[in-house]
Amino acid sequence: MNWSEFFNMGGYAFYVWTSYGLFILVIVANIISPMMQRKKVISHIKRTIRRENIGQAKRRHQS
């Protein structure tokens, strides 16, 4: 197994390795994006809860 020959891919190195690079990029993006989405959803809900608690506290204070 000659590594330099392997990476050369019979002269098509650019096309093959760019394709596999984009493949890894798409897989990683599909893994990271739901994680970020989850953080966003959780922080959004936490902020809503905090806003509601402040609202209730104010009403109790005024009544």
């Binding site: 891919m9 019979g10 096309y15 093959v16 394709s19 596999y20 493949f23 798409v26």
Partner: peptide, 13 residues
Amino acid sequence: GESYRIIFIHVPA
């Protein structure tokens, strides 16, 4: 030649 190896990600995708 070797360029066909793209098949292993192109076709499943």
